[in-house]
Structure formats: structure tokens, C-alpha cells
């Protein structure tokens, strides 16, 4: 059965949703059957595209909505939301 799940999460990383977390997000998305979209305000982008996620320019504290449509929608939103909210350690080499 196909479900649609949408919830809001706040970006936890001090560097925002920069390239490396966006890359991890997309890698995680590819493991789900569901179609994933990410929204900021009224702008929605494809959750399977690193560059699309980066185009949202989501800094720390930004509310992002994650929408999943598919059989594993609930699990997808939970796992992807956890990644968005993760307050990742900033390596000495800076961002990415």
C-alpha cells in the first residue's frame, strides 16, 4: 500500500545542509522505494538530487519538510528526518 507521510524537521548541523550531509541524504533516499521531496517554505525539490537540496540553502535552524510517497514512507521520513536534525561534529577541515 502506498502511503504519504510529511513532517517538518529543523536542520541541526552548524554548517547547515551542506554538500556532505546532502550526499548522505541522497544515498539514504536511494535505499527507499518511496519518492522523496524536500521543502523549505513553498519551495519543493527532488530529495534524490544533491544539487537540488543544496539549492534550498538550508542553514542551521531552518525548518525543512520531508515528504515521502510510497510503501516505506513512514520509515523514510523518520530516518531522513533524523539525518536532517543531526548536530554533526564539524571536522577541523571545515565544511563540504
Amino acid at each position: 500500500m502506498s502511503d504519504e507521510v510529511e513532517r517538518e524537521f529543523v536542520v541541526g548541523s552548524p554548517l547547515g545542509m551542506h554538500a556532505r550531509p546532502a550526499g548522505r541524504f541522497v544515498a539514504l533516499v536511494s535505499g527507499f522505494e518511496s519518492e522523496i521531496s524536500v521543502g523549505k517554505n513553498d519551495e519543493w525539490v527532488n530529495g534524490a538530487s544533491v544539487l537540488s537540496i543544496l539549492s534550498l540553502a538550508a542553514a542551521q535552524g531552518t525548518p525543512l519538510r520531508i515528504r515521502a510517497v510510497g510503501t516505506d514512507a513512514e520509515r523514510a521520513v523518520s530516518e531522513l528526518g533524523a539525518l536532517v536534525e543531526a548536530d554533526e561534529e564539524v571536522p577541523s577541515g571545515g565544511g563540504g
Binding site: 554538500a19 556532505r20 546532502a22 550526499g23 544515498a27 544533491v50 563540504g96
Partner: peptide, 9 residues
């Protein structure tokens, strides 16, 4: 190198 840090696979 930058690519692989973003897209690990």
C-alpha cells in the same frame, strides 16, 4: 577527491 567526500559510493 571532493566528489568522493560528498558521494561516498
Amino acid at each position: 577527491q571532493a566528489l568522493r567526500s560528498i558521494i561516498t559510493d
